[in-house]
Design a binder for these strands. Structure first.
Length: 212
DNA sequence: TACGTGATCACG
DNA sequence: GTGATCACGTAA
């Protein structure tokens, strides 16, 4: 989408869907709202000259004030990047196999994050299929472990700024409104007690690309 | 439903 | 040091 701005008496035209989200997007306080707003945005990577990307169709919010969050019990070696200023990635290894990609939000010392759970592939489908060892794009990014593998994200991305040229998030051209997504409880955090019931998982209604 | 997989965390 | 645990994915 092209957008025309009047700035200092001159018209400027910009291509909005190619715009990286600014750090200020991530540095706001309300992680639940940010998780909702990330729906429809486009997660992109560029490793070894291979660009891959996908539209975010499922997210989960984590706040350091509830038991589902890795940072609930304070800073550890694993979660320390969550305590940095928002706008960087938090990537950790889950079950010894899967690299899970999170967006760190909020200001420094407020350790909130959004887990990206599923994408609709956009660019570089061939590269994603090669990385996954499959011949079809079907469900190739429908889960947090799978999308990281498809986009080439591993723990070497931990703590990277999301305005970098390796990994970033673009505005996209989908505007996802409240009526376009559903909120459900988050997956796989039974240890969180009643915080596991918070409806902080968001997915785009009618998307074929959400996790199972 | 069952389990691979290895880093991490809390314990001492 | 050590053992239990784990924000998943696949096969069955």
């Amino acid at each position: 989408m092209f957008v025309c701005l009047l700035l200092s008496g001159k018209f400027i035209t910009i291509f909005v869907s190619d715009m990286k989200l600014p750090l200020s997007f991530y540095q706001r306080q309300n992680v639940v709202k940010i998780a909702q707003e990330l729906l429809g945005k486009v997660l992109c990577t560029n490793f070894d000259g291979s660009i891959t990307s996908g539209m975010i169709v499922e997210t989960e919010a984590y706040s350091d004030r509830e038991r589902g969050c890795h940072a609930f019990r304070g800073r550890t070696e694993r979660n320390k990047v969550m305590f940095e200023t928002g706008g960087i990635s938090y990537v950790y290894l889950c079950y010894g196999i899967h690299h899970l990609f999170n967006v760190v939000t909020n200001e420094k010392e407020k350790a909130d994050a959004v887990l990206i759970r599923a994408l609709q592939p956009m660019k570089g489908e061939e590269i994603m299929m090669e990385r996954m060892g499959v011949r079809s794009v079907k469900r190739i990014t429908s889960g947090p472990g799978k999308l990281s593998k498809a986009l080439g994200i591993d723990r070497s991305c931990n703590g990277k700024q999301l305005t970098s040229d390796d990994i970033w998030i673009e505005n996209g051209n989908q505007k996802i409104m409240k009526k376009d997504f559903v909120a459900r409880r988050r997956i796989g955090i039974d240890y969180a007690g009643r915080d596991a019931l918070l409806p902080w998982r968001f997915s785009i209604k009618s998307s074929d690309w959400v996790s199972r």
